[in-house]
């Protein structure tokens, strides 16, 4: 690991709080770590004696595993905490829960929480380095970083490139972090989906809003396809998944009409046959599994660059 650059912040609360230079620094470190995790011996001692707690107040499989793997590859001591098995279910506040854990001398907190801004709230009250692993419908910065890193690997620098995000934008923390990250890297960003699943003021973020999936695919170089988050929908925003799949699902027939290759991405988990068909998800232009691999490298980079930062 050769990167010596510093980040401008001691936490990763969101993409909003970091600079373009921070993003590029993380990319550089991630490229180094990607090389490391492809070696026969994948472990480095960078975070030896650093204790990281993974606080997951919401269910997660892939993000938690990805973070844990990144932490272990960096030789950190890892604690895992889930809300369902904790005193949170007995009514304890977030601040009390975290302060109790920090009293055991924990250095870094990786947290997923259902409330937007939970990490900002926490950063006002504790000293440990905080990494946002998703806060409600707000941000999911490491996903955006790994997405942009994967895009860069696939098509080169993103300046001036057209990136499309398709699907449930309203309930997606991935969408917002992606938009902020891609804009900082100079890309043109568009979103496409049913109007009820796109925030009313999305255009105020400098994002193109499209409702026709074919036109949107024709416009873009990369399509990042998001899952319909039925678990976050308190009311019905679309009449049925069948209708969604018919009018907004990305399938091979649509891509054939575009007539040129588009890089296909998906942050997972995939609902095959709903937002994406199997022949698209498994096609040669899909980089979905590269995203997963890059996720570990990006998270190693973030943990490494933030560890011990005051």
């Amino acid at each position: 690991m050769t990167s010596t650059s510093q980040l401008s912040t001691k936490h990763l609360l969101g993409i909003k709080q970091i600079t373009r230079e921070d993003i590029l620094t993380i990319f550089k470190a991630a490229a180094d770590f990607k090389e490391v995790i492809n070696r026969p011996i994948k472990k480095v001692p960078s975070l030896r004696d650093v204790t990281v707690v993974n606080l997951f107040f919401e269910n997660s499989t892939r993000t938690r595993i990805s973070f844990e793997l990144a932490e272990r590859r960096l030789s950190a001591d890892v604690l895992n905490f889930t809300a369902s098995s904790s005193s949170v279910s007995k009514g304890e506040t977030l601040l009390d829960t975290v302060n109790n854990i920090l009293a055991m001398k924990v250095d870094m907190v990786v947290m997923r929480h259902p409330a937007p801004g939970a990490h900002v709230f926490l950063s006002n009250h504790i000293d440990a380095n905080i990494i946002n692993a998703g806060d409600g419908t707000h941000e999911h910065p490491t996903q955006a970083l790994l997405d942009a890193f994967s895009m860069t690997e696939a098509i080169g620098p993103l300046e001036g490139k057209n990136i499309l995000i398709v699907g449930d934008i309203l309930h997606s923390r991935v969408a917002l972090s992606n938009i902020l990250c891609l804009k900082k890297l100079g890309a043109n960003v568009a979103v496409c989906g049913p109007p009820t699943l796109i925030p009313k003021h999305m255009d105020s973020l400098g994002v193109k809003v499209m409702y026709n999936i074919l036109e949107a695919l024709q416009w873009c170089d990369v399509a990042n396809i998001l899952r319909i988050q039925l678990e976050r929908q308190d009311i019905k925003y679309i009449p049925s998944l069948r209708e969604y799949a018919l009018y907004y699902g990305v399938n091979k027939a649509l891509l054939d009409k575009v007539g040129r290759p588009i890089v296909i991405m998906h942050p997972g988990p995939i609902n095959r046959g709903v937002e994406i068909s199997s022949d698209v998800a498994d096609s040669e232009h899909s980089i979905i599994l590269d995203q997963v691999e890059n996720g570990v490298a990006i998270r190693m980079a973030v943990l490494y660059l933030l560890a011990g930062k005051k």
């Binding site: 937007p116 801004g117 806060d135 707000h138 923390r173 009313k200 003021h201 999305m202 973020l205 308190d234």
Partner: peptide
């Protein structure tokens, strides 16, 4: 305005929160 947390606008979009239009 059900479950809304703040004014609906650019800031609510940026903060990922449901807004009151």
């Amino acid at each position: 305005t059900q479950d809304a947390q703040m004014h609906e606008g650019e800031m609510s979009t940026l903060l990922g929160m449901k807004g009151m239009p």
